[in-house]
């Protein structure tokens, strides 16, 4: 993994790139995330240790790893859903708080309230201090963004899984998060819907410019979406238990990337190798 290209080299932070971006409509300010020696143990068993990295504002970082390696644990720590971690974790300049309102989470399951319409579910994500009319127009905007305007009145059970995930994404965006946390949000979707959702996420990111932390076990998804990939895992040689940062690589090229591009093949092979899978 040491030969991975362009280590620690964020791609889309040059000034000219920023100027060409349309003004963000959903996230007025995207925030950095600083992990410092973050670790987590459950009942004496270490799951995660020594995670140190800084996510720059507006960056998309994919957290990649095998099942049970602590990817979701790391994400939940950033969202303030879990306060049992060690080390320090900053969002912007201040420490993470319980259920931190600068972040918003898109869960693996849509977790929509079954008795509320799609519109009412998205309203759930609005900040408390927002006026009713502002809230309504923001929800309209988000429904438009995720392409659910004509389904807004339906209940979650009346729409498909992909639509439910789009609604869940819109709900997360409703509070204009400085950091958007996505926990395998497309994991339960079929392959085609999944590709469409990836495109939608890129579209959302282009429009909002929010920082995105995306947990996935799909190497291709990470390569397609991320500026950088954080590979979590345990080296065979490590004497202690618990996953640590196995590699932190920048993905070459600019988004949207061609899914058939061959230039990512070496990196893909390395990531597969890092996950303990033979890519051939």
């Amino acid at each position: 993994m040491t030969s991975a290209p362009a280590l620690e080299h964020p791609l889309r932070t040059t000034v000219s790139d920023q100027l060409e971006m349309p003004p963000p409509v959903v996230a007025p300010e995207s925030l950095s995330v600083t992990f410092n020696e973050v670790g987590r143990a459950f009942g004496g068993r270490t799951v995660l240790r020594n995670v140190t990295m800084t996510v720059t504002p507006g960056e998309v970082v994919a957290i990649l790893g095998a099942s049970g390696c602590g990817k979701s644990t790391l994400l939940r720590a950033v969202g303030g859903l879990d306060s049992g971690f060690t080390g320090s974790l900053l969002i912007g300049d201040s420490a993470v708080t319980r259920y931190d309102e600068r972040t918003a989470v898109g869960f693996q399951e849509p977790r929509l309230l079954p008795w509320r319409s799609i519109r009412k579910n998205i309203e759930l994500g609005l900040p408390k201090d927002l006026s009713k009319s502002e809230g309504q127009s923001r929800v309209d905007e988000l429904l438009e963004l995720v392409g659910l305007s004509d389904r807004a009145h339906l209940r979650p059970r009346e729409i498909s899984g992909g639509m439910a995930q789009r609604a869940s994404l819109a709900r997360a965006l409703a509070r204009q998060p400085g950091v958007l946390l996505l926990d395998e949000p497309f994991g339960a979707l079929d392959a085609l819907t999944r590709l469409k959702m990836q495109d939608l996420l890129l579209d959302v990111h282009a429009k909002t410019g929010t920082t995105v932390l995306l947990v996935t076990h799909d190497v291709n998804e990470a390569l397609q979406l991320a500026d950088r990939i954080l590979l979590l895992g345990r080296h065979e040689s490590d004497p202690v238990e618990g996953a640590a940062v196995k590699a932190l690589v920048s993905v070459p090229g600019t988004r949207p990337r061609d899914r058939a591009a061959t230039d990512l093949a070496p990196l893909r092979a390395e990531l597969y190798a890092g996950l303990g899978v033979d890519s051939r």
Partner: peptide, 13 residues
């Protein structure tokens, strides 16, 4: 508990 956690994550308590 998933729904309750989602509620909490969006600032409800």
């Amino acid at each position: 508990p998933h729904l309750v956690e989602a509620g909490r994550a969006f600032g409800y308590h």
